[in-house]
């Protein structure tokens, strides 16, 4: 790493060292999949399994065409697992590395970026797999696919500050992990991943879909891959989400910087 960082380096100083966090994330993935029969191809298998098995079941249960259900499930599912990984992993991203934090002077935001890098590499493999299945079933690569690029940039920024905020709260209040364990399943069911908004009545749809920011975060990726541009309100929700998550996390890091390291112990 060129240009030394320490515990108190800011989020933006840490982000400049992105190569470092990606290299550490690759080591994590190598360690995770070492001695498994398929290595990182397990990510492809998991994505295919979810898309084809759950997709076939949903096609039969709701009497909908496979070409509509499977792409929706596979792309939405891959994006949901990324968000879930950030929610659950973010809350423990500092406390789970406390042994390292106590022995090395690495920037604390770096541990969060390290986690995000690992989740994004996994997501990249999953989303390429899910998109390929979807495009085969749709019979084309939609022109809107190019909008995944700004969508991905916005989603990455949202997830960075979400993980940062959860890591700080999770280090200070250890009950957060248990709270998240309770709320993630209802959150999954309330988010349009395994169901489509068109299956709901208009008033319910308005409440569940339009007021649920996670639904909009998923739409940033799913809509362009499946052939439609994300709705204007989706872009607005994404930008507001970044601001609402960044402000408290940057404020805590700025004002409680010297205390955060003690919270992790």
């Amino acid at each position: 790493m060129d240009g030394e960082l320490n515990h108190t380096s800011s989020v933006f100083q840490s982000l400049k060292q992105w190569r470092t966090w990606i290299a550490l994330a690759v080591f994590d993935l190598r360690a995770q999949y070492r001695r498994t029969s398929l290595g990182m191809y397990w990510i492809v298998v998991a994505t295919l399994f979810f898309a084809l098995v759950v997709g076939s079941l949903w096609t039969a249960l709701f009497d909908r065409p496979a070409g509509e259900v499977i792409p929706w499930l596979s792309v939405g599912g891959a994006t949901w697992w990324l968000i879930l990984g950030v929610i659950t992993g973010g809350a423990t991203s500092l406390t789970s590395r406390s042994a390292l934090i106590k022995t090395l002077d690495l920037p604390l935001p770096g541990y969060v970026i390290w986690l995000l890098a690992r989740l994004l590499i996994t997501f990249l493999i999953a989303i390429v797999t899910a998109s390929t299945i979807s495009w085969i079933l749709i019979g084309q690569v939609p022109q809107t696919t190019v909008l995944v690029v700004p969508g991905m940039l916005l989603l990455s920024a949202i997830l960075l500050f979400l993980a940062m905020l959860l890591s700080l709260i999770g280090a200070r209040y250890r009950s957060l992990v248990e709270v998240l364990r309770v709320v993630t399943l209802p959150l999954f069911l309330l988010t349009p991943v395994i169901w489509q908004p068109s299956q709901l009545g208009a008033s319910t749809r308005e409440r569940l879909v339009e007021l649920n920011p996670i639904g909009h975060w998923i739409a940033l990726i799913r809509d362009p891959i499946l052939g439609s541009a994300p709705a204007p309100e989706t872009w607005v929700v994404a930008i507001c989400s970044i601001a609402l998550l960044a402000l408290p996390s940057l404020a805590v890091l700025r004002h409680k910087r010297s205390e955060v390291v003690y919270w992790t112990m």
């Binding site: 190598r30 360690a31 406390s98 022995t103 690495l106």
Partner: peptide
């Protein structure tokens, strides 16, 4: 915390150099 048990000695040296 500073060593990753599933990785080889060389990989750990590389990882530690980055850390």
């Amino acid at each position: 915390g500073s060593l990753a048990e599933p990785l080889t000695g060389w990989e750990n040296l590389r990882r530690m150099a980055i850390l």
